[in-house]
């Protein structure tokens, strides 16, 4: 797959503080790449350097295999931190301005306003918009040049649950179009729901990078319940059980490597027990994230 972004040893110092430390990262075409990290872990600083507003202290990066210039940035749609627009201009005029700077076709404006469902309010001044509308206008402005890559930094920050769901839907729709998306967030749930790949940053250092699919791999936990007195004994007997815990009357069986819920189910069935409750619990990104951060200590 074509490499869209390649970062080598990127570093940014603010005085004594090292905000980004020797960061190496690769993003390939078509990925929805989540950048995770606690607040202040260097996500926005990294994106700021990638977008030319923060000067790197050392290291380098390339977009599309070439060193970055302002011309490369025209091909990228980006919203960093919070939406930035001229408050005294209408949404429409702000987008016209964005399109002029990016050299985009102004005809796209109608389309992107439609995507973010702001067509009805396009002639109102930006300062009259609600936070959710501002975030949506920011996404519209990032889309106006029909970019190959979209960079979104905390796009759901400060939104209510409905707003979050709306933005998530928009991101999913854009991803379905085959665009490469880099999404910085501290909302793990959000990243797990929309991203294909993710990286974890902590104090400016890359802690982990890989596909989201792999998060669920590794040992499974199976929740099991049956109306049978011998259940705990049989669970102990099952050769695939690593540990067994009872929580709220339900058994949590941590499986050994190579064993899955169907093996347990088959075993119990052969012993004459029919389960009333059987759930495979994959590890969540949240759990993995906390583990990665814990390992770092």
């Amino acid at each position: 797959m074509e490499t869209v972004l390649s970062i080598q040893k990127l570093t940014k110092n603010f005085g004594k503080l090292c905000a980004v430390n020797q960061l190496d990262l690769e993003v390939k075409r078509g990925q929805v790449f989540g950048m995770l990290g606690p607040n202040g872990s260097g996500k926005t600083t990294t994106l700021g350097m990638l977008m030319g507003v923060t000067n790197p202290s050392s290291g380098s990066f390339s977009w599309f295999g070439e060193p970055s210039t302002h011309l490369t940035r025209k091909k990228i749609g980006a919203v960093l931190e919070h939406p930035i627009f001229y408050p005294y201009l209408s949404g429409q005029k702000n987008l016209e301005l964005n399109a002029m700077i990016k050299g985009a076709n102004p005809a796209n404006i109608v389309k992107v306003l439609d995507i973010v469902e702001l067509s009805a309010r396009k002639d109102d001044k930006y300062r009259t918009y609600s936070l959710g509308m501002k975030q949506r206008l920011a996404i519209a402005s990032a889309l106006v040049s029909d970019p190959i890559i979209l960079i979104l930094d905390e796009p759901t920050n400060g939104l209510d649950p409905m707003g979050i769901a709306e933005i998530r839907e928009i991101v999913k729709r854009i991803a379905a179009d085959g665009k490469t998306i880099i999404l910085a967030s501290h909302l793990l749930d959000e990243v797990q729901k929309v991203c294909t790949h993710f990286a974890v940053l902590r104090r400016g250092k890359l802690m982990h990078s890989g596909p989201v699919d792999e998060v669920g791999k590794g040992e499974e936990t199976v929740e099991v319940m049956a109306y049978h007195d011998d259940l705990p004994v049989l669970l102990q007997e099952f050769i695939g059980s690593a540990t067994i815990k009872k929580e709220n009357g339900i058994f949590q069986v941590m499986m050994k490597d190579g064993f899955h819920s169907q093996d347990l189910n088959k075993f119990l069935f052969e012993k004459g027990i029919i389960t009333s409750h059987l759930i495979t619990k994959k590890k969540t990104l949240e759990k993995q994230f906390l583990e990665i951060l814990a390992e770092a200590h």
Binding site: M51, G52, L71, R73, K74, I84, F85, P87, I101
Partner: peptide
């Protein structure tokens, strides 16, 4: 205004060079 509204930052992100 460009500093106060931080639109300078967005102009650069959108693909203006600092010289431009």
């Amino acid at each position: 205004n460009e500093y106060q509204y931080r639109t300078l930052r967005q102009n650069i992100i959108d693909g203006m060079s600092r010289f431009e």
